[in-house]
């Protein structure tokens, strides 16, 4: 690197950016360990009592499992549906392709609030109760475009040679799909799943509108917000952040491996 005025300015930009971006997160994490009643300075000492309190809170722990369940199942379904659609559209060109692509990508342009409200009204008319299932259905809707786009972008001509080789050697269509294409696409499938799971895990508005008795974590956190700042909320927030970051790192590693593997 050349050491000029530009270097100092660059460093200042990065430092300022880091402070702005991390200030609230650092406060969140640090004061989740607060040995006191309010999560603001002064820091009164290190304590895990708020984590203890959060993990003893039945509503929170139940919501935690609900969130994990909804995130895993809805992401699994979104990934499978998205991959199948991408596979069909990438390998078979018809005049309907453009319309199918537009349909599949459309939910990305509409606010979660409107998607959730539309589903709430439709379910009410159809006599379907508010439930975790309803939330999961909504999460598949919002994650399907992403899973589709990730798979579609990676389904290029480079796998076709392998698929043809498998066919020439006598593999049936399902065998080729499951034993050749899916393993080649594993990194993209993993990335699509991890991204979907992260988004579902954090999603609030749809879960808020479509759930009643069994709720997800963001909905419980929302109801806890009414009582104002509390180190328990910091502790919960830190846990949620840790899970998201773990999922993200998993996705990142998968993408890295793909790039290295070419």
């Amino acid at each position: 690197m050349r050491f000029r005025g530009g270097t100092v300015a660059s460093a200042l930009v990065l430092i300022a950016a880091a402070i702005f971006i991390f200030l609230p997160v650092v406060l969140l994490v640090q004061f989740s360990f607060q040995d006191g009643l309010v999560p603001v300075p002064p820091f009164k000492g290190f304590s895990l009592r708020w984590y203890e309190k959060a993990l003893e809170n039945r509503r929170l722990t139940e919501a935690l499992w609900n969130s994990a369940l909804v995130a895993l199942l809805s992401s699994l379904l979104a990934t499978i549906l998205g991959f199948l659609a991408a596979y069909g559209l990438a390998r078979r060109r018809t005049r309907w392709n453009r319309l199918a692509e537009l349909t599949l990508m459309a939910p990305i342009t509409v606010s979660y609030l409107i998607i959730g409200m539309g589903l709430l009204m439709t379910f009410t008319m159809a006599g379907i109760q508010k439930s975790l299932l309803a939330v999961g259905i909504g999460h598949v809707v919002i994650n399907l475009p992403l899973a589709f786009a990730i798979c579609y972008a990676q389904l290029g001509a480079h796998q076709v040679a392998y698929e043809r080789a498998a066919e020439d050697l006598g593999a049936g269509p399902w065998q080729t799909l499951l034993l050749v294409t899916v393993p080649i696409m594993a990194p993209s499938l993993g990335a699509a799943f991890a991204l979907s799971a992260t988004l579902s895990w954090d999603e609030f508005v749809i879960a808020f509108l479509l759930s009643r008795f069994d709720v997800t974590l963001p909905v419980v956190i929302w109801s806890m917000l009414r009582s104002g700042l509390s180190p328990e909320l910091n502790a919960v927030g830190t846990l949620v952040f840790a899970v998201s970051v773990a999922a993200l790192l998993a996705a990142e590693l998968l993408i890295f491996r793909r790039q290295r593997g070419g």
């Binding site: 549906l81 998205g82 199948l84 659609a85 596979y87 069909g88 559209l89 390998r91 078979r92 060109r93 199918a100 349909t103 599949l104 459309a106 939910p107 509409v110 998607i115 539309g118 589903l119 439709t122 259905i137 909504g138 598949v140 809707v141 399907l144 589709f148 076709v160 698929e163 043809r164 066919e167 049936g172 269509p173 399902w174 080729t176 799909l177």
Partner: peptide, 24 residues
């Protein structure tokens, strides 16, 4: 395009499209 599996390929996008039509 691969040669085989026209039926599988033709139907593969259907579940996702139906899901989006029904729930979006």
């Amino acid at each position: 395009t691969t040669r085989a599996a026209p039926r599988l390929l033709a139907w593969a996008p259907a579940p996702a499209v139906i899901w989006t039509a029904l729930f979006f």
